[in-house]
């Protein structure tokens, strides 16, 4: 019964057609009997939390990989935000260079958080502004079964969600900002809104960004498509690992 139900929901999810309110109302009686929201035993959860790196995210990449993905390139000195100084190795003829050893540390921490949230069935939202990389990010978000918002940010998606979506809506549990700047070089409004709503945020911060409002920051280049693809790949892998573990533990 459970399997059939799962297949049904799956087909529903995959259906390309637009579902309408009157045509496909899930029956309340059915949904209450469904046991999809089964819980992982709490002792197992505790064990997962206690482990420093349960999902082995540290072996997802090496500093060399980051280096090859051009993550160490920063902007020119003139646009440097003083708050980014601790993460910067130095300046090469006017161009700031990130310290990838530090970046790797922060990135591993962020990947660990992402994997844990995926493990707890959290909703993860990828955010980005800028047309060049938006399709890339959307594709990776889709591949790992999570969500993306790479378009114009209409105010109040988090802070006034009931009005925006016309109903009570579950907000994401984690926002991953692949870049934190707007196209007009001001900060993405969602950074502020997520902070207001107490949503955890992971943000790639370039040398001209302000990391103050982010929960987990990753200093690094956020402009090159190569770098963006690297981040997306890593986060996708971490999320998939978290989900795989969740599936495994649910079956026990």
């Amino acid at each position: 019964m459970l399997k059939i139900k799962n297949i049904l929901t799956l087909t529903e999810k995959c259906a390309p057609t637009i579902r309408l309110l009157s045509s496909a109302v899930p029956q309340p009686s059915e949904s209450t009997t469904q046991i999809e929201t089964a819980q992982i035993p709490s002792d197992l959860q505790q064990e997962v939390l206690k482990h420093p790196d349960y999902f082995q995210v540290h072996n997802l990449f090496t500093v060399k990989d980051l280096f090859d993905a051009r993550i160490h390139y920063g902007h020119k000195e003139g646009s440097l935000d003083p708050k980014m100084l601790p993460y910067i190795y130095g300046s090469r003829l006017g161009h700031t260079i990130f310290d990838l050893d530090k970046t790797a540390e922060y990135l591993r921490r962020a990947l660990n958080v992402a994997a844990h949230i995926a493990y707890r069935d959290g909703v993860i939202l990828f955010l980005l502004r800028g047309a060049q990389n938006s399709h890339l990010v959307e594709r990776y978000a889709k591949e790992c079964g999570e969500f993306a918002h790479t378009r114009f940010w209409r105010g109040g998606i988090f802070t006034n969600s009931e009005k925006q979506f016309g109903a009570v809506t579950r907000l994401p549990d984690l926002c991953i900002f692949v870049n934190t700047l707007n196209t007009v070089l001001t900060q993405h409004t969602a950074v502020r809104d997520a902070a207001k709503m107490g949503i955890a945020t992971i943000g790639i911060v370039d040398s001209n960004c302000n990391p103050n409002l982010l929960t987990y920051l990753v200093p690094g280049n956020d402009d090159s498509p190569v770098a963006v693809e690297m981040y997306c790949k890593l986060f996708k892998e971490a999320i998939l690992r978290g989900k795989a573990k969740r599936k495994e533990h649910l079956e026990i």
Binding site: T9, E12, K13, S31, Q34, E36, T37, D121, V123, L125, E138, A141, K142, G145, E146, F147, A148, H149, I157, T169, R170, P172
Partner: peptide, 12 residues
């Protein structure tokens, strides 16, 4: 779905 997780990856 029942847990409040949207179906569509661009829902937000």
């Amino acid at each position: 779905d029942e847990t409040g997780r949207p179906y569509h990856f661009l829902f937000y």
